[in-house]
Write a protein that binds this DNA or RNA. Sequence first.
DNA 1: GACGGTTTTCGAATGCCGTTCGAAATCGGT
DNA 2: ACCGATTTCGAACGGCATTCGAAAACCGTC
Lengths: 211, 211
Amino acid sequence: MHGRTNLTAMRLMDACEHLLCEADALEDLTARRIAIEAHATPSAISYHFGSQEELVAAVAERVYRRLNAERLSLLRKAVDRRAPDPPDLDEVIAALVGPSIRWSLDPTSSYPVLSHFTSMAKTHRERAPHYRRIIDNVEHHRAFVPHLKRIAPWLDEIDIGWRLNCALGIRSQVTRSRSRTEVLTNYGIDLDDPDIVIARMVEVIAPMFRR
Amino acid sequence: MHGRTNLTAMRLMDACEHLLCEADALEDLTARRIAIEAHATPSAISYHFGSQEELVAAVAERVYRRLNAERLSLLRKAVDRRAPDPPDLDEVIAALVGPSIRWSLDPTSSYPVLSHFTSMAKTHRERAPHYRRIIDNVEHHRAFVPHLKRIAPWLDEIDIGWRLNCALGIRSQVTRSRSRTEVLTNYGIDLDDPDIVIARMVEVIAPMFRR
DNA sequence: GACGGTTTTCGAATGCCGTTCGAAATCGGT
DNA sequence: ACCGATTTCGAACGGCATTCGAAAACCGTC
């Protein structure tokens, strides 16, 4: 009954994830190609997921979960290191943006899935439930709020959320608009080195949380 | 000879711009619809612009020029107000992000063209020349560098470019990921008021340029 | 005002696309 | 071995952007 625990449903997800990573443009992802790679037929996509869109959404959600797990693990590590004192601001920021940066630079990661997914959400009607469910899922970002509040107690939760959102915007700009970043910085920053990029990001984000 | 000074070419651009503003998803924009609105046929698009993609790119470029003109006019105003002293940092930042914010909140503006264009550039192969020409065109952003350097002379041009890029990322996040911004800020900021949003952005961007 | 080369418009045809649907096949419990 | 439920398949369908040859419109020149 349209289950996604099915074997071919799994193969479809794997094929979709793989194709999304290889393809440098969303238009290269077609139901027929996914089907071939999964040793199935295009109709299998409709049958198991309802539509190709929803298949991609399912794949993206899976990848998001991995990324968020890494983020939260780094956050926990940062908190534990200083407990019971507030964690180090730089370390918290690195936990927030680091995984995205590293994944986007790691050719073996599934980061392309995420950028393709968000652009797909914009191409199709964004308010569709299976999009909003993923896009509006900011619980893992909320996890950062209380710790940042301890670091900057003079900011209220709205201020913190706003700055968090800004930090994510910076992250997106760097991971998704690479050529613009290159040009604006005159090719003067090694954007292939995750540590350098993360340090640069901490450098601009940290002041938002200082007096 | 494939001119875009042609009358129907103009009508195609106007129709395309209008449809891009109305449509809330890129998939609503089809060659047939554009053609009908322009009292032409789909083949006219291929004839005059080569492809639907390039038509959209031409339209986006036109809109970009308007936005950039407004940005540079505000920058000039900020510079002139304080000359020969360095301009006010807050005013320069407002000149950088203000037009985008105001356009994105003005239902009569053509801002949707720009967000649809960037998502189209991601859907199709991004390195295509007619995309890079527009996306990598950061000359109007470069215009901000010397003035910011006067404000923060201890930063080199790479630092300035990096911070400029970060500011643009924040801008994109707010204008393009509205629902995320709403959720993260607990609906505590009136995102429909451009002045409030701009002030909030200045609040986080300005510290990047201070010691 | 008719001509001829150039530019523009048109409409049919092509090859993709995602999805639908009924029939075949497979599965699992009895 | 049977049968109902689940899954797979292949042939459609309609829609899409684009191509192409023919028709049409345009325009400077005779």
